[in-house]
Design a protein around this nucleic acid. Structure first.
Lengths: 345, 345
DNA sequence: CGCATTTATGAGAGCGCTTTCATTCATGCT
DNA sequence: AGCATGAATGAAAGCGCTCTCATAAATGCG
């Protein structure tokens, strides 16, 4: 029993040169129809499968791109990954994944390994990274597409995270809330959360409100994080009448925590999320949230990257629209608070 | 400005042979300490990064494994993927991902592409696939690890899905429920759901109960699927007093739907899930669910695969334990039903 | 009908690394 | 001291494919 047949075996069988077989595989349009059919018949007969490593070495193309995400098991990134994968596999590209758990060093290391292994393009999340990593990327001369945040150098597919925060805050302000808290992810190596927080802060400032540190709770990005954050914010004096979750998970956790404490959402506490994941519309009360087109980010990132790889398109930034989806978790502040507020003024 | 330095450049710079540089990279223990240091210095100086494609071609090892999942954006598979990735990257392996959206053909195609691209090992979900795919796998002679369901041929890291269904059902039976419905994913190319359903059916049968088709609602695997399934089951005459979700998402959707209809969970309707995802413990009421060690499946699958790749370990099956986590969403059936039930008897 | 094109195929030199085999010393043993 | 061993390195033959260049055949045109 022989090992896997190689290109030359097919060539021999079909009575053509290796070059012809190679063309049959990668540029069939160059061959006469008859020759092509002949080669394909031999290939099928022998069960020929081209060797990817050899193709990669000889052609310089690996037909593989990589995505380095903070984590793979977040609904958001998983969804983006899924749409990337679909877009890529549709044109024969493979997707390599890595995660860094919000560690700058881990990201740099992942990028290094990926570049060594050989990739045709790279998708990263966020714009914040040490200059060393950027240098590495530049030297490797590999097309890069950034997602969620632009950096002005690489191509990017983003949303305006500050606007997301702003939309959430403005909605609450418009409803009459004046004490608004925020449950927010750690800001280290997370420019998305930082931008959202700044958007909230800016909107509040414009309304003459402020967002003191003690009304911001930084939490790990899980539902429990949301619960704990809500818990912390509700326990301080002068408790907020509304909460913004830096991600839906926080908002969902906050609703759960508020309910567990016997508070009614939204009448006792309004909650607004950012992301608009599937859960948002399904929980009770349904969650008001800023819709972020996550899947579209993934797909567009993949397509943009393919454009850069295959047609050498120059870097370009695409900003996807976002919008507030008002549901049941937000309403006017409690009457007691309205009174208290007016007496304060 | 030169292009990336190659191995031979380092050899020249260090005044050694290419073979020595190669050893410095892949088998440093073979070199004299002094030589190694010399080579490493040159490599660092020149910024040498080995070419993965060339390494792969020359050595036959790609340092890459692939995972083909039904979808990447399910919490379950995303979590498994995450733990695989961590386990793999710890030993320098890269993870390639593909998804097939529960299409047999798509899986076969993904496997074909992956094998062509060159991988050292493969992780698949479930045991059900056409013989053609298995043949392909056998010919490629690549180590395979199955997850969630064993097939008796390949190595596997699994849980007893039938037992999961059984645990859920027995819990409800023990509480006194006699009309138990199930929201279940499509069974086509999904042996996990099939096994869970069979487990439920078997447990009911042993209790002298049956599970007529009209008490099973097959739904797409989303929360809305859960809502719709619940909706369908509640609308038939002789409505069930308890529902089992083939995945937590269904159970979660069922709770939402029941609540939206003004039913109280668990007093009007008990709901049990399978998977025990993070949401289960956080929703209100918290969800009784059969815990499946998803992350562990991923990690063990990766480790098992590595064992097969690096130490040529023979296929082995590992069955991970599961257990029912009782929370607030399940209780005894409504009193009215108990009466009605006894009058029926 | 002859020449300039175009189209289809072949020849062959790599792509950058690994790895066997051979070679050279240094070492241990009797 | 003399020989068998083992350790450290080098030489060189690929790994399986791609792609440029050259050639041969087919086509178009005046």
């Amino acid at each position: 029993m022989r090992s896997r047949p190689r290109l030359i075996d097919v060539a021999r069988d079909a009575g053509v040169s290796p070059a012809t077989v190679s063309r049959a595989v990668s540029q069939p349009e160059l061959l006469a129809a008859a020759t092509l059919a002949l080669v394909q018949a031999s290939a099928r007969k022998l069960g020929y499968v081209p060797d990817g490593a050899a193709q990669a070495l000889a052609s310089g193309r690996t037909m593989t791109v990589a995505a380095v995400m903070p984590t793979l098991d977040s609904i958001i990134f998983a969804k983006a990954l899924q749409s990337m994968q679909v877009a890529l596999s549709a044109v024969g590209y493979q997707l390599l994944v890595a995660s860094h758990e919000y560690s700058v060093g881990a990201e740099a290391e992942a990028v290094r390994l990926l570049l060594a292994r050989g990739i045709d393009g790279l998708i990263l999340v966020g714009a914040e990274r040490p200059e060393a990593t950027n240098t590495l990327l530049r030297q490797a001369n590999v097309p890069v597409v950034l997602t969620w945040c632009p950096d002005g150098v690489n191509a990017s597919v983003t949303v305006d995270n500050a606007l997301a925060g702003r939309l959430a805050a403005e909605h609450l302000i418009r409803l009459g809330h004046r004490r608004i808290g925020m449950v927010c992810g750690h800001l280290l190596f997370n420019d998305r959360q930082r931008a959202r927080l700044e958007g909230v802060r800016a909107a509040l400032a414009e309304a003459g409100l402020d967002l003191p540190d003690w009304r911001i709770s930084h939490q790990p990005m899980t539902i429990s994080g949301g619960r704990n954050g809500c818990s912390a914010l509700l326990e301080c004096a002068d408790r907020p009448t509304a909460l913004i979750g830096g991600i839906d998970l926080f908002a969902l956790g906050s609703i759960a925590e508020a309910q567990a404490r016997g508070l009614c959402v939204p009448s006792d506490l309004s909650v607004v999320g950012i992301d608009d994941t599937e859960m948002a519309s399904q929980v009770s009360p349904s969650l008001t949230s800023v819709h972020i087109p996550t899947a579209q980010i993934g797909e567009m990132a993949a397509l943009t990257l393919l454009g850069r790889i295959r047609h050498a398109e120059p870097p370009a930034d695409r900003l996807l629209p976002i919008n507030l989806i008002v549901r049941r978790s937000s309403t006017v502040p409690p009457a007691a608070d309205a009174l208290q507020r007016s007496s304060e003024t």
